[in-house]
């Protein structure tokens, strides 16, 4: 059983937003909402500056508060540990939005909560997620965290990395490579 995860290489990401735009077409994300976005974090004072650049999305937490918060199991864990929302079962109580420490969820105009699915529909066809495959800098890597042959596995072995808000104890599967 695979354990899907994603890395964002902050060395390579230029916050161009190609991932954001590709994701919106791929997943028909409504205007005003986005499943991934970019962040620039500026530090320092002229001329000693640094800018962290990355693209963020659902962390597909291994210990996902959104999953426990959902009264109807609409938010549930799919194959590979991917956290997804079943539109039918979603009653729109928004408990998951409140529970998610990362604000990655949005209320779809059609009255259900939506978010990144790690493009499971593509992954099932053996493709990379849309954001990964469009990325002109190849800053994004998707794969099975348990497969030693996977690029992502090696990256996490070799490179310094961090996750968002580790203190939340959510065990994210989206890793940021330093």
């Amino acid at each position: 059983m695979a354990r899907y995860g994603m890395t964002v290489d902050e060395k390579l990401c230029v916050t161009c937003n190609a991932c954001v735009i590709a994701c919106k077409s791929e997943n028909n994300v409504p205007e005003g909402a986005a499943r991934c976005w970019t962040v620039q974090a500026e530090k320092g004072t002229f001329p000693f500056l640094s800018v962290e650049t990355r693209s963020e999305r659902c962390n597909h937490c291994e210990n996902a508060p959104c999953v426990s918060a959902c009264p109807t199991q609409a938010t549930h864990v799919e194959e590979g540990g991917v956290v997804v929302v079943d539109q039918d079962k979603c009653v729109g109580c928004k408990a998951c939005i409140v529970a998610c420490p990362y604000e990655v969820r949005y209320l779809h105009p059609d009255g259900y909560v939506d978010k990144c699915t790690f493009c499971l529909h593509r992954v099932r066809q053996g493709k990379d997620p849309a954001c990964v495959s469009v990325c002109p800098t190849s800053a994004l890597t998707f794969g099975d965290l348990d497969d030693p042959r996977a690029k992502i596995f090696q990256q996490l072995q070799q490179r310094q990395h961090r996750v968002a808000k580790p203190e939340e104890g959510t065990r994210p599967k989206l890793f940021f490579l330093k």
Binding site: N28, V29, D110, G111, L120, H121
Partner: peptide
């Protein structure tokens, strides 16, 4: 054409 598909689709996002 740019508006999202209506609710009456796959219950789970299957992309296009």
């Amino acid at each position: 054409g740019l508006l999202p598909a209506t609710r009456a689709g796959a219950t789970q996002d299957s992309g296009v």
